[in-house]
Amino acid sequence: MPINSISVKLPGDVIDKEQLGIKGKKPLTGPGLSEDDGGIIQACKAGCLKLRTEGGCTLWIDNQQKRYVATKGDAVIGVVTSRQTDTFIVDIGTSSPASLSYLSFENATKKNRPDVKVGDIVYGKLLVANKHMEPEMVCIDSTGKAKGMGVIRTGGTLVYVSLQWARRLLSKECAFLSLLGDKLPYEVTVGLNGRVWVKGRSVEETVIIINLLKNSETIPDSMMSKYVNRALNKLVGVK
């Protein structure tokens, strides 16, 4: 997928469409950019301007952030904070907690309620997310299948990372998760809200994976295999 990083933009910088070679077609503006009535695109966050030319023009700013802002369709990990008559309230790190209907689980009916308790970790998708409404989460896709979503019950740990690192972990360019898996088998679920659930074969291995995960955020993609292998080899030496 041709994604070009172009330049660093700060809030207030005007994006010059001609300089980017976008002619005629109106580009789609993503996060970090705002477009006024006159069609002038300005940056409103500090970060790297990215351009994708596949299937129309998409422009966005890739910035580093810790606070999650709900976006429709994002796969997120949340913690159930309370139960109401027909919904669960799930904390996903946004300003207002998400609601999760008890009917939006696989095979759930009015009589067959899902067994979800306060404190459970749920992985799901955001069905409704806009700034005026509280986000709504679902644990099924449009055909009613779970597709891996639902309550995570098998132990493990939930760690919080920055949003940029969570996005990078899920991208094809970043081989961190697969490199780690070659040496230490583990289970992982990454939410776009910066929450990562990890479970290794033992508690010790889970701790090792978490520490590596937290420390490798600043390692560039090209250095990742070297870094991970060296870190793991050191551990073998200690054992």
Binding site: P11, G12, S34, Q64, K66
Partner: peptide, 11 residues
Amino acid sequence: LLDAGIPLRYI
């Protein structure tokens, strides 16, 4: 504010 990713009109 820049670090937190708060949308700004200008710096």
